[in-house]
Design a protein around this nucleic acid. Structure first.
Lengths: 235, 235
DNA sequence: ACAAAAGTGTTCTCGTTACACCCATGT
DNA sequence: ACATGGGTGTAACGAGAACACTTTTGT
């Protein structure tokens, strides 16, 4: 059969907002753009959609290429389509957001792309509409993390409750009562206590926990209420 | 500057899942497709993206054309990108979901597109991946409506609490205690009682209410908890 | 001994739930 | 008078929030 005639055909790009947590700060991964226009400026990691691949495959491909990681948490965020968003040629970009274990990344890091982690409050000006993408990704992360236990995707295999609390406090910019926090987390059944302790951040040491992966899958869709007063957040 | 060379250029389509509520049932609007392939089969309403318009403008254009309505609730759902989703030519489709007041639509209806409303449990087989889009839209509607008062977008200007309860019960396929429901809704401050009653569905008659639009905007982002046990839903 | 972070228990409040009776009206 | 759907109140329960002291250990 013949093609659809007289219709506009466009480039399709994928851009990924990659979040990581180093134990203290929540960060995103940016690269120095390697092509014109805006070569050398900071940018999200991205690529054009290839023939015969769908968007989520493209996002995985980019992530694998830039971080060496597969199987990470990846979710479609939004399609950005301002006709002037790319000055060279009209391009639609579908943004994905990814949550990775920053420690796993460090083992895989390739320096050929000039990638760097930036704290959320120190993100430089980005090319095109990437600022807007980052803003939307931050909002979505807050929104989802208030309802689903996705922040575990940012944690290493073994982690402590104070580390986890740090992350939640970072994501929401609030302080959380540690008694209520640990009770709530422990009551989810998502945590498995380990016999050993982490001793770098305190003299007493904090017990390690691992994620109970079965419960994680089962509870993922449950509406948790991890953040006190989450009904006051904007979503 | 020159264009990006050696990259694939694709068609971009927009498809809209349009929800309406007639006072009894939740329905979606479908059309008989007017072009090949699959001409004559049931389909979501859609169009190709035009030069110089962004996706949300395109979605509004389609909605205006098919329903005569402007300013309706419209939200980007997801970009669908399976390379084989359209057998004629590779096309990415960005699905939007829309909530309209079915009564306003009836005043505007144009018959040239063979549009029909279908109850959610009686949706025919649709072309391409439109079934999947509808499924995702239903899930998203349940998800959002449990947290935000979006179902008011489906109601006429004046409505009764029993009508509203009908809608919530339809969206979730559950029965809700009417005492708890009305208390919860009234406590939001979103409803303004009218002096007159609706008398078609009962002898006693049910008071009309209107939406308090100021409170609606202010409370839209607040996490309400309209559905009992919403934490047991899948999201 | 003391500083620094980890860990734990109780009370109060408020929102959620379950549940039953009266009201207004058309037939 | 009765059938139909609308409208309201109360008691029990459970989740969330506020709050302070003890433990461990390195210095």
């Amino acid at each position: 059969m013949s093609k659809y005639s007289k219709q506009t055909r466009l480039l399709t790009a994928i851009d990924c907002i990659v979040f990581g947590f180093d134990g203290v700060d929540l960060k995103i991964l940016l690269v120095k753009r390697g092509m014109e226009p805006e070569k050398g400026k900071w940018s999200l990691i991205g690529s054009f959609l290839q023939q015969d691949e769908d968007l989520s495959k493209a996002a995985s491909r980019i992530l694998k290429l830039l971080t060496g990681l597969s199987g990470v948490y990846l979710e479609q965020l939004h399609a950005f389509s301002n006709p002037k968003r790319d000055p060279i040629e009209r391009t639609i970009s579908v943004a994905y957001f990814a949550l990775i274990d920053i420690h796993a990344y460090e083992k895989q890091i390739s320096h050929e792309f000039h990638a760097e982690w930036f704290r959320l409050d120190k993100i430089p000006k980005l090319i095109f509409d990437h600022d807007e993408m980052v803003e939307m990704a931050k909002e979505k992360l807050q929104y989802k993390a208030a309802l689903h236990p996705i922040l575990f995707e940012l944690m290493p295999e073994k982690f402590t409750i104070p580390q986890l609390q740090n992350l939640y406090e970072g994501v929401y910019g609030t302080e959380i009562d540690k008694r209520n926090f640990s009770r709530k987390l422990l009551s989810t059944g998502l945590l498995v206590k380990q016999p050993d302790k982490e001793r770098e951040n305190s003299k007493k040491g904090a017990y390690y926990y691992k994620l109970n992966k079965n419960n994680y899958k089962a509870k993922f869709q449950a509406f948790l209420n991890i953040i006190p007063n989450s009904h006051k957040l904007k979503g």
